[in-house]
């Protein structure tokens, strides 16, 4: 068994392996597949609760991942936002001195969640300009 606490490096190495097998398209193909096959809980929560589903989903995952974050939900304005002060995934990868993170590691978050939320009518925006320092932000909004 690979411990769930060792998953992030395993994930990063999987991206490297896939890129070696089939280029960036192979990595992106996997991200699309993972979104379709595995993020059904996010899809179901948003379908049932609207934008509050984002709050319910990330409140569960980010607490279990021991992330350092601020999360805001304004249902009236139709806006959900996460300010990631220290991402537990990228933070872990940059801490390891014996393996290099996959060069485009953080982009999986953009692809996976956008693929769920945009077809449901939400606008999904991410700022990854500081992701190499394990900081990012995402905003999900429901157009008026």
């Amino acid at each position: 068994m690979i411990s769930c606490t060792d998953f992030i490096p395993a994930y990063s190495e999987l991206f490297k392996f896939l890129e070696e097998q089939g280029g960036k398209e192979a990595v992106e193909g996997f991200w699309n597949h993972l979104s379709d096959r595995f993020l059904t809980n996010l899809r179901d929560l948003v379908a049932e609760h609207g934008i509050r589903g984002c709050w319910l989903y990330w409140n569960h995952t980010l607490n279990e991942e021991a992330a350092d974050f601020t999360m805001e939900l304004d249902e009236e304005a139709g806006v959900f936002r996460i300010e990631m002060h220290h991402c537990p995934s990228m933070g872990r990868l940059i801490q390891l001195d014996h393996i290099e993170p996959y060069h485009d590691y953080c982009r999986h978050c953009d692809v996976l969640y956008r693929r769920v939320l945009e077809p449901m009518g939400y606008k999904y925006e991410v700022d990854m300009s500081e992701c190499h320092e394990a900081r990012c932000s995402l905003t999900v909004s429901r157009p008026g």
């Binding site: 769930c4 992030i8 409140n59 279990e64 992330a67 350092d68």
Partner: peptide
């Protein structure tokens, strides 16, 4: 409006969905 802030030290790192 709801807002929460968590520090890494507030929780144990154990997200079994990663399996």
């Amino acid at each position: 409006k709801q807002v929460i802030t968590r520090r890494a030290s507030d929780n144990a790192y154990l997200h079994k969905d990663f399996h």
